[in-house]
């Protein structure tokens, strides 16, 4: 198969921080319209994997191709959007919902980042899709966890990226937000976007991840969720802890 038909093609990538290995020999190939769950313990390298794909950290070995191009040109083309964990952002930063979502447009604006009519429209549309139109000028510090999560999702939508990387999209959100995000994922899939999301919630993986990538510093298992997401693999991923303990006996 031609490598260009992959949205994400990560081959044998390694990342180390000052000699300390965080991820090694990791592979991932995703096509348009695929949703992939990234599952692993804390410290297993999930965030490092995201950082490598966005170019926030340099890989020490291996190769990453985004639409057949380098990560650098993917950044320039606004191809990848990253939706951080709620804990990963300063919620006391003096900034409104509108301003955060507008940051999704910065990469395609002029040097002063002055919004054009099309940018304003993109931001409006994105905010409407996450149902925050009534909260445009609210500082993010005054939002609930779910609303804040939706704000950052709107930023990714406004960016019009074809690849979405989401770090724990369902942690600390209310039922309404969870439902809205799930619906958006179906829409994104139909729009041909590629989604990679990390999660601790195994139910979500079964519900809408076509593929699953189990990691523990390296890839433990990767493939169709129905085939790969087995109790044995999960146990290996979580260092020998049985899935019964993790998700209750019914799983």
């Amino acid at each position: 198969m031609n490598y260009q038909s992959f949205r994400i093609d990560a081959e044998n990538i390694c990342v180390d921080y000052n000699g300390k290995v965080a991820l090694y020999d990791a592979n991932l190939r995703l096509k348009p319209g695929q949703i992939c769950g990234l599952v692993g313990m804390n410290g297993a390298g999930k965030t490092t994997f995201f950082n490598a794909l966005t170019g926030f950290v340099n890989i020490s070995k291996g190769k990453i191709r985004i639409n057949g191009e380098s990560v650098r040109s993917a950044q320039k083309d606004q191809t990848i959007a990253y939706v951080p964990q709620n804990e990963g952002i300063d919620s006391q930063f003096p900034i409104s919902v509108w301003d955060v979502v507008m940051m999704g447009r910065y990469g395609s604006m002029n040097i002063f980042r002055s919004p054009r009519e099309s940018d304003v429209q993109a931001v409006k549309d994105a905010i409407e899709r996450v149902d925050l139109t009534d909260h445009l000028s609210i500082p993010i510090g005054n939002l609930s966890g779910g609303q804040r999560k939706r704000t950052f999702l709107a930023r990714a939508i406004a960016q019009r990226a074809s690849i979405l990387l989401l770090d724990e999209p369902f942690s600390g959100v209310d039922i309404r937000t969870e439902k809205l995000i799930s619906e958006l994922f179906i829409q994104f899939k139909n729009e041909g976007k590629t989604i990679l999301l990390s999660t601790h919630d195994m139910i979500h993986v079964r519900e809408f991840c076509d593929l699953v990538l189990l990691i523990n510093k390296t890839v433990v298992a990767y493939g169709e969720t129905s085939e790969v997401f087995t109790p044995e693999n999960i146990t290996t991923t979580f260092g020998g802890i049985s899935p019964d303990f993790l998700f209750g006996p019914e799983s």
Binding site: F56, P84, Y106, F112
Partner: peptide
């Protein structure tokens, strides 16, 4: 604005080039 973004969310800044 870039400096504000850098202070707020450097990872996003990097991601959008």
């Amino acid at each position: 604005k870039d400096l504000m973004l850098y202070c707020f969310d450097p990872r996003h800044a990097k991601t959008v080039g």
